[in-house]
C-alpha cells in the first residue's frame, strides 16, 4: 500500500500537470478517467493562483490583457509555485520572470511596472507605524542634528526604473485625466512608495534622497547619511547629459521625507549625564551604538 507521502506526491504531480499515469492505481474513476476527476483540482489550483497573481499585479494584467496574462501566469505558476499559503503575498519572482519572458519582450517596461506593483503591495501590508510630526526635526538643537538618527517607515519601498513606471501605473487608475498620455521617451523615475497611514503613496525623488533613506534605514547618523546622499547626488549629476551638479540640500530633503510621512522617529544622542537634551517626545528610543569607522 502506498504511503500518504507517495499518494500526495503522485496527486501533486498530476495537479501540477506533470504526469497522470500513476493515478489509475490510486483513484477510482466512477465512470470517468481518474485524470478527469483530478482535473477539477488542477482547474482550482490554476484558476485561484492566476486570480491571486492578477489581484497582486492588476496593472500588469491590464497592460497585457486577460488572455496573455493567463498564459504568463500559467508559465510562472509552473516554474515558481507559491511556497506559502499566504497567496496575497504570492508573486515576488514575477518581475524577474517577466524580464526573461520572451513573449513579453515587446513591453520592456513591464518588469518594472511589476516591481512597482510588488512594492505597493508590500507597502500596503507592512507593519503600521505613526509618522513623526512635521515640527519634530526643527525642534532638534542644531548642534545635535548631525548625530541624530531617523527611523524610516516600515512600509518604505522604492523602485528605480529607466521608464516612467509611476505614470504608466497611474494611467491605469480611475482618476487618470482623460486624454492625458504617457510617452516612453519622457525618461526614468526613482519612485518612493510608502503607507504612512491608510493609503499607499508614491512620490518621485532624486538619487541623493534615496541614498539618504537607505543610509537612515541602516541606522546611520544624519551626518553620515548626508555624506552618502551628497555623494550619490554628485554621481547622479555627472551621469546626466547636462552635468548639472547642484549639491545636495539635506534640510530640504529631510523636510520632504517628513511631509511624506517616511520618518517614524528622530532619536538624538543623550548628554554625558544621561539626560535627553531636547523634548523627550522626539526621542523615544536609545540610539544604536555608532558602528565602527572603517
Amino acid at each position: 500500500m502506498p504511503s500518504l507521502a507517495d499518494i500526495q506526491r503522485t496527486l501533486a504531480g498530476a495537479v501540477r500537470g506533470e504526469d497522470d499515469t500513476p493515478l489509475a492505481g490510486l483513484v477510482a474513476g466512477h465512470g470517468l478517467d481518474p485524470a478527469q476527476r483530478v482535473q477539477i483540482h488542477r482547474n482550482t489550483t490554476h484558476l485561484t493562483l492566476t486570480e491571486a497573481l492578477g489581484a497582486n499585479f492588476p496593472v500588469v494584467r491590464a497592460l497585457v490583457g486577460e488572455a496573455f496574462f493567463a498564459q504568463t501566469a500559467r508559465a510562472y505558476i509552473r516554474q515558481t509555485p507559491p511556497n506559502s499559503p499566504v497567496v496575497s503575498a504570492y508573486g515576488d519572482g514575477l518581475p524577474d520572470f517577466l524580464a526573461g519572458h520572451e513573449p513579453a519582450r515587446s513591453l520592456p517596461y513591464l518588469p518594472d511596472v511589476a516591481r512597482l506593483e510588488w512594492a505597493r503591495l508590500g507597502a500596503l501590508q507592512a507593519a503600521d507605524a505613526a509618522p513623526v510630526a512635521p515640527a519634530t526635526l526643527g525642534a532638534v538643537p542644531p548642534a545635535l542634528v548631525p548625530m541624530a538618527r531617523c527611523a524610516v517607515h516600515p512600509s518604505f519601498r522604492c523602485v528605480v526604473s529607466p521608464w516612467p513606471v509611476d505614470r504608466i501605473w497611474a494611467m491605469h487608475q480611475p482618476d487618470w485625466p482623460e486624454g492625458e498620455t504617457v510617452s516612453l521617451d519622457e525618461g526614468g523615475a526613482t519612485v518612493l512608495i510608502c503607507r504612512p497611514r491608510g493609503q499607499v503613496l508614491m512620490a518621485r525623488a532624486d538619487r541623493g534622497t534615496l541614498s539618504l533613506l537607505f543610509a537612515l534605514e541602516m541606522g546611520q547618523t544624519l551626518a553620515t547619511a548626508a555624506q552618502a546622499a551628497a555623494h550619490a547626488a554628485a554621481h547622479s549629476a555627472r551621469s546626466t547629459p547636462d552635468g548639472a551638479a547642484d549639491g545636495f540640500d539635506l534640510t530640504a530633503a529631510l523636510a520632504r521625507l517628513v511631509s511624506l510621512g517616511l520618518l517614524t522617529e528622530v532619536a538624538v544622542p543623550q548628554t554625558a549625564d544621561g539626560s535627553t537634551p531636547c523634548d523627550p517626545l522626539m526621542s523615544r528610543a536609545t540610539p544604536p551604538p555608532e558602528p565602527p569607522s572603517p
Binding site: 500526495q8 495537479v15 501540477r16 483540482h41 506559502s84 497567496v87
Partner: peptide, 8 residues
C-alpha cells in the same frame, strides 16, 4: 515548496 491553493 509547492502550495497548490486547493483543499485536496
Amino acid at each position: 515548496g509547492a502550495f497548490l491553493n486547493d483543499l485536496l
